[in-house]
């Protein structure tokens, strides 16, 4: 799967959970600093992605995930594993 497709999915998850404007998002966008998202919101964003890609991402893999790009990396690793 193209990385751009995964990034786009993370954007969509952020729009759904955090009601943000998609056009303002980049790979460098920080969940906490830019989107004012707490840890529960990050779990919700990841759950949206789990649902979309039919994955299961353990909570401990979210430690240190602070940006949209980092979240996409975690998702991409799981998609590779699943493939």
């Amino acid at each position: 799967m193209e990385r751009s497709e995964i990034i786009d999915a993370v954007y969509d998850a952020c729009v759904e959970v955090l009601k943000v404007d998609k056009s303002t998002l980049t790979e460098a966008t920080s969940f906490a600093d830019d989107l004012d998202a707490d840890s529960l919101a990050l779990v919700e964003v990841v759950m949206e992605l789990e649902e979309k890609f039919d994955l299961r991402i353990p909570e401990d893999e979210l430690d240190g995930v602070t940006t949209i790009g980092a979240a996409a990396d975690v998702v991409a690793a799981h998609i590779d594993t699943a493939a």
Binding site: L40, V43, E44, M47, E50, R56
Partner: peptide, 10 residues
């Protein structure tokens, strides 16, 4: 069980 949301309790 893995789809249960983190916000259920609050």
């Amino acid at each position: 069980v893995n789809r249960v949301g983190p916000l259920l309790i609050p």
